[in-house]
Design a binder for these strands. Sequence first.
DNA 1: CCTTCCGCTTGCGATTTGCAACCGCTCGTC
DNA 2: GACGAGCGGTTGCAAATCGCAAGCGGAAGG
Lengths: 165, 165
Amino acid sequence: MGEANEPRSECPINAAIEVFGDRWSLIVLRDIVFGDRRYFRELQANSIEGIASNILADRLKRLVKSGLLTREDTRAGQRARYSLTEPAIQLVPVFAQLGSWGLRHRPTSSALKARAVLLEQGGPALWQEFMDELRREHLDSKLPARSPSVRERLNAAYLTATNSS
Amino acid sequence: MGEANEPRSECPINAAIEVFGDRWSLIVLRDIVFGDRRYFRELQANSIEGIASNILADRLKRLVKSGLLTREDTRAGQRARYSLTEPAIQLVPVFAQLGSWGLRHRPTSSALKARAVLLEQGGPALWQEFMDELRREHLDSKLPARSPSVRERLNAAYLTATNSS
DNA sequence: CCTTCCGCTTGCGATTTGCAACCGCTCGTC
DNA sequence: GACGAGCGGTTGCAAATCGCAAGCGGAAGG
């Protein structure tokens, strides 16, 4: 995928596709957003789709370059933490719609389905709450934390579905 | 992109990405949905991103195979019309969210921006109306047509923005 | 010093992309 | 009944990208 070349068009939908329209970018972001993975090996080892390390390295680089992630600059050999930026946090509604669509029109496991269902039922209000939560964790906003967090609720739904199936 | 191989995971978001997570599938669908293009050469010639004919042929084939499009079976040398299926029509909310995101976080032309703005302001109610309109045009539902259609309104917004800029 | 963990990088074959040119077919016209 | 325009593609080919496996240099702990 070309990097520094000019956009194919100025259509907003195309602009979005040019940033994360490939088979891995959204997967990486999904694992950071919903899985709370912040480190390279965490992202690679726990990936249910099995991302290769060179692909992950490339996507992280590109997402940083395009402003969706930031990387704490650490010396080599040390844990480097990735954080979501505001544009990436605002992908939550996109994820919600993608999940709703996949849920309805593709075969999915009942456990992984549970999160998408909850996210759909919660609607925009829940998405906003989740985005605020992400801002607290990834940006240095000093907003107070609430409990239980939305992610905890999403994961609880996942675990419940796992045990009951 | 492998075709007949099994899915990487059963996550609803991944399932969606496996169907249209590449640089061209959603562009083709966007032009059918918002641009009302139904024929091969129409899609190729009017493409603002400049899709190549072999890529377009491949994507149309794959979208038919995955159940997002249907193709009228005609003899060779005759116009073959493509139609959206119900799953494809239900991508409207996905397009709306992608457009809203691109609008906010990427540089886009003011003319093409106008449609995304209108789609965002209309909200889920407008999306539903548009989806009903698409069902009337692409499925053989005998629902009565309304006017002005949502697409007409979206295109009017585009033209207004073009002339005023 | 040795092992472990860290974020990657490298090599390499297989696949996919994208550009041009071209193809067989049908239909309307002359 | 030959012709040209329009139809949906196909083919060849070079370049880029993907994806697997192995390895690498630095840091931290024992």
